[in-house]
Design a protein around this nucleic acid. Structure first.
Lengths: 334, 334
DNA sequence: GGGACCGCTTAAATCGTTTCAATATGAGCG
DNA sequence: CGCTCATATTGAAACGATTTAAGCGGTCCC
């Protein structure tokens, strides 16, 4: 219980507390011999500075926070890895939090980050958190939105062009001769969904033939895909779509699982395109054609931007939009 | 920059700082009318308590830290979800850190946790960190080791019986008539690997026929699996194993990918068993037979144990060992 | 009517570190 | 030898919250 503190180290090394602090934080101000004595004392006593006291005095917290939307989705863990790698370079710790799409948990973590006075936060908003983000920013925390653009566009963001992605997927399906395309995934209030689905619809329209059937879903996981697959199976064979555009790869894998289990042939009966190109897409029962998002790159870009904003809080808001890329595999006959 | 603090709230509400603090932390000590005034002032000024000051004064940090070994492996994210769910019930924040198998990063995060005076830490050690864990514990941080048992066994742990798992996998392969079994994965210094491989060897020995070929690997990811697959392909057909026991599902998926790409039939030519039974195992090109580990349950158990140790630091060291379970699918002819 | 007691509020001390002005030490130089 | 200047070190104040003992009115009861 009796915590070893600078005072103890100072006494042990025969110097004053101020010098111990300097040895740790401004080594150039301390003579080498004194420094060695102090470091030896620290080692011997097992002193570990109390970060709360340091932060209180300094008024800043070095750490960066990141709120991950869905830790079970490899897409987001890839983003996180890009963030980590970039932060490791500048020696700043990353604290991860997982909202799991829950608005409450997202709010709770944002509040926690606010109390902690973090210097920067990366967030993929799950709910209406504009007010909280504003308050965070007003208190001096840099904010960059990842994989989204907030409505008001008042925060810098890094995202991937979902309209282009939706177009790539749809055009490809049309190119391989499909006409009745089911879009599996939701909810539509997610900008992701809205844009991908919107692009699909527009693409079909421009093409002059074909149609989009939206099979909505409450979430974007494998289970939702299975449910979507069942919906497909329940349709009379005549009206059944000949292609599926899944909102992401998890959904696609769920759809695939249900379809193959029921004996529907992919891609012969139904072609299938996923989104994200997670590592497991290539290893699926039928390797998935997918729209690849540069996830790691997005993490890197967002972190770079965040560090910029931290060092220059007045930096202009900037929206970086990366481009997705179609990866053709067997599930569309590739 | 001018931070809103209790002093300001107090002035605004016409009370003293102490009363503001009480309103927040000991509401029963404050009259309802005063409390309402204070809450209104807090709301109006947008006051957010400085957690560093609170923690400094209180001497404790509510948060729990968790060091995840490999965030890209769904197995570990499942564990994390179990942890999260349990902590959410008691309202403690979880800060995640990702060691990515790196000893240095693991140390760095443990040091950070020590500086933060967290009340508890869950860790799956990647390197030699016994000394750091001891220091953490000695300073009052509760520690539970997840998915490992530390050498000295001086920390409570929750793990899954790897010997049983190795036995289940191997026995199954023998049961379906395979004799030359390649164990793909490494390094062997990982207790996981050691036990699974050891059990496989022993199982073969007891069975009286068959053999284990160890294809070592430096890591346990899909890429390592691909490399293992290539090694298999390079073997002369006559000496090529008729079964693969992969150290985990990621490796198994890599092996599967390489083999199917090269036209080797699974399970006909080579049967394949994975480990962990991650969600993607069932959705693989050939659905994977796998040894299921109760990942979420492990997270829940570890967290429960941790909370026990926090509330009673003198609690006895306890090693909880959960049992794995074989899930048979197509990759072994199921 | 006086004392005990009760509930609420206050003021000041405190947590452990960093910072800063002030002081001490020592070197260099005429 | 005395002075200046640079470097090294000190000691006390400060960071923003919580806690604690003390204070203040008011009520209750004999």
């Amino acid at each position: 219980m009796p915590e070893v503190q600078v005072r103890d180290v100072a006494r042990h090394a025969g110097v004053s507390p101020g010098t111990v602090s300097n040895a740790l934080n401004h080594p150039e101000k301390v003579s080498p011999t004194t420094r060695d004595k102090i470091l030896a004392a620290i080692e011997e006593l097992g002193f570990v500075p109390n970060i709360a006291a340091r932060q209180l005095r300094r008024g800043t917290n070095e750490s960066i926070g990141m709120i991950v939307l869905d830790i079970a989705n490899p897409f987001f863990t890839s983003v996180a890895q890009g963030v980590e790698a970039t932060l490791a370079e500048v020696g700043r710790p990353l604290v991860l939090a997982h909202s799991g799409q829950s608005h409450e948990r997202e709010q709770a973590y944002l509040d926690l980050f606010a109390e902690q006075r973090l210097s920067g936060v990366l967030v993929t908003p799950a709910g209406q958190v504009l007010d909280r983000l504003r308050r965070l920013r007003d208190r001096g925390t840099a904010i960059v939105v990842v994989d989204r653009k907030t409505g008001a566009r008042e925060f810098s963001s890094v995202s991937v062009d979902d309209t282009l992605g939706g177009r790539l997927a749809t055009q490809h399906l049309l190119d391989v001769g499909r006409r009745r395309i089911a879009f599996v995934g939701g909810p539509e209030r997610l900008s992701q969904i809205k844009h991908r689905l919107g692009a699909a619809r527009q693409c079909v329209e421009e093409h002059g033939s074909g149609e989009i059937v939206h099979l909505d879903a409450a979430s974007l996981d494998v289970e939702a895909g299975r449910a979507g697959g069942l919906q497909l199976l329940e349709m009379p064979a005549a009206r059944r779509p000949d292609a599926v555009f899944a909102a992401n790869d998890l959904v696609a894998l769920g759809v695939l699982q249900t379809l193959t289990l029921a004996g529907v042939r992919v891609p012969d009966d139904i072609a299938l395109v996923g989104y994200d190109d997670i590592e497991f897409a290539a290893a699926a029962a039928i390797p998935l054609t997918s729209v690849r998002q540069p996830a790691t790159e997005m993490g890197v870009a967002a972190t770079g931007r965040l560090l910029d904003v931290i060092s220059d809080p007045g930096a202009a808001v900037e929206h970086i939009v990366l481009s997705p890329q179609l990866v053709v595999r067997r599930s569309t006959g590739g």
